[in-house]
């Protein structure tokens, strides 16, 4: 059913993207099997029912370790973080262990600091810029690699590398490439006489923000391209052929066939993009360290600095809770507004 160019072997069940026609079918998946089991049960004798009950317990034993782990390493930190955000941590806390209750003081300090509105704006710009750039370029790459041409598979594979490299590695390389005095980017610009003095990639405040967005786009293109590519592959080719017969050019075909059918995947890509980008820390820490003059300081880097540089764990916790709220709010608003996307999201899960 698939062209041989798909990297996914047919043995693997590729997740089908809900195209709207079968709205809800995937979400209803679990109850359907449940009903089937109900039927099953009626046909078996009572002994089997008892066995099944035991089995259910056994079934839970499969889940318990993972659930316990998730509770410990997500549930506990969330709760602990919430508690910490109401406590006053100082260096003395480390010796005496006492962190007195501070009420909303951490929140009021964090939210009223000069840095907060700036960091919030930077977070929004960084996220919007990164997600937009990754998506547009990722889609362009996905559309391009839809074509079949010699070496296409190999090239598509290579394209994944930026996404798989440790962020510290790519960040370090970019930092060095973007060095205003000695970096290869400015050397090339100067060599081509595009700029006489070079661009202050890491030393200008707005340029530094642009730089970290650029690096993050570079990191994110492969992921976007891969998912969108998968989505494009799932669009039946005959629809394009039909559009062509109707006299639609490539642009019209994209607008009226590809885009509407790709919409659900687009939704997933964008939501995931925002949720993952909002909390990005390593790229910024490595490339600019939040500077210059706090120009690339986001909520996430602020939280890191408060906790691990200034040992203000209470305020750091308050700051990171702001981040959680932003992230959750975005995801929930989006999911409510877009039921169709939610189905895809669930299918993805």
């Amino acid at each position: 059913m698939r062209s041989g160019s798909r990297p996914v072997p047919d043995r693997c069940p590729t997740l089908r993207v809900d195209t709207g026609a079968e709205d809800g079918a995937v979400a209803a998946g679990a109850p359907v099997t449940g009903a089937a089991e109900e039927d099953d049960k009626h046909r078996k004798d009572r002994a089997l029912i008892r066995a099944r009950r035991w089995e259910r317990l056994a079934q839970w034993m499969f889940i318990v370790p993972a659930a316990a782990y998730l509770l410990l390493f997500f549930g506990y930190p969330i709760a602990k973080n919430l508690v910490m955000s109401f406590q006053q941590y100082t260096t003395t806390t480390f010796y005496t262990g006492s962190a007195p209750f501070a009420g909303l003081q951490n929140y009021s300090k964090v939210l009223s600091s000069d840095l907060f509105p700036k960091a919030l704006l930077t977070t929004v710009l960084f996220t919007a810029g990164s997600v937009f750039g990754q998506f547009v370029l990722g889609l362009a790459f996905a559309l391009f690699f839809q074509r079949r041409f010699p070496l296409g598979r190999v090239l598509r594979g290579l394209l994944l590398l930026p996404w798989l490299l440790p962020l510290v590695v790519s960040g370090t390389t970019w930092k060095w490439m973007l060095d205003p005095d000695t970096g290869v980017v400015n050397n090339a610009l100067r060599g081509l006489h595009l700029s006489s003095s070079g661009i202050p990639w890491l030393t200008g405040t707005s340029q530094a923000l642009a730089s970290v967005i650029l690096v993050n786009i570079w990191v994110g293109i492969p992921f976007n391209a891969t998912i969108l590519y998968g989505g494009l592959q799932d669009i039946p080719a005959h629809l394009h052929e039909a559009a062509k017969l109707d006299g639609a050019g490539p642009v019209a075909s994209f607008r009226h066939v590809t885009w509407p059918l790709l919409r659900p995947v687009v939704g997933v890509v964008l939501v995931l993009g925002v949720v993952y980008t909002v909390k990005v820390l390593d790229v910024i820490l490595v490339v600019t360290g939040g500077g210059p003059a706090n120009a690339t300081e986001t909520i996430a880097t602020q939280s890191y600095e408060l906790s691990f540089q200034q040992f203000e764990f209470g305020r750091g916790a308050a700051m990171s809770n702001v981040l959680v709220v932003i992230s959750l709010a975005f995801a929930l608003v989006y999911l409510r507004a877009n039921r169709r996307a939610r189905n895809v999201w669930e299918a993805v899960a």
Partner: peptide, 8 residues
């Protein structure tokens, strides 16, 4: 007389 990179 001084690089702006002194910032970093």
């Amino acid at each position: 007389s001084m690089s702006k990179s002194v910032l970093n």
